[in-house]
Computed example of a mutant assay.
Amino acid sequence: MKRLTDFIEKQSFGVCNALGNRLGFSSSSVRLSFVYASFFTFGSPIVLYFVLAFWMNVRRAMRQQRRTIWDL
């Protein structure tokens, strides 16, 4: 079961895992609260999820493009 959730999390941008690591919660509790919030608010946290996924990919791309003086 752990391998399946890791695979799904990796394929789905890793937002819940990153939030869990940053806030000090387990990724499964963040994922579960996200699912509950999606049901209670009729899916509006999905927009927040995609915004966070976009932001994480932009930050990752910026880190990869960043050059140091030693790279010249």
Rank of each mutant, 00 (worst) to 15 (best):
L72D: 10
F54P: 00
N57P: 00
L23E: 09
M56W: 01
R3E: 10
S44W: 12
L23D: 06
V47K: 03
R66G: 03
D71Y: 06
S29D: 04
F54L: 14
L23T: 13
S26L: 04
Y49C: 08
F25W: 13
R67K: 15
S44D: 01
F50C: 08
L4T: 10
V51L: 15
R59E: 10
F25H: 12
V30F: 07
M62Q: 10
R22I: 02
I46Q: 05
R60H: 07
F54W: 12
N21T: 04
V35F: 10
F50T: 04
V58I: 15
V35C: 03
D71I: 02
L19R: 02
W70S: 15
R22N: 06
R31Q: 07
Q64G: 05
I69A: 14
S33E: 03
M1P: 08
R31P: 00
V58Q: 04
G14M: 07
V47E: 02
V30H: 06
G14T: 05
L52T: 05
W70E: 15
Y36H: 00
G43N: 04
S27E: 11
P45F: 05
L4H: 09
Q64I: 13
Y49V: 04
E9W: 00
W70Y: 12
S29Y: 07
T41M: 10
L4A: 14
R31G: 15
F42V: 07
K2P: 02
R3M: 05
A18R: 15
A18G: 01
G20C: 06
S28I: 08
S27F: 02
W70Q: 15
S28N: 05
A61T: 08
R67L: 13
S12G: 01
S38P: 02
G14N: 05
S28F: 01
V35Y: 05
T41G: 07
T41P: 07
N21Y: 00
I8F: 13
S33I: 14
C16E: 06
Q11E: 11
I69N: 14
F54A: 13
F54N: 07
N17F: 05
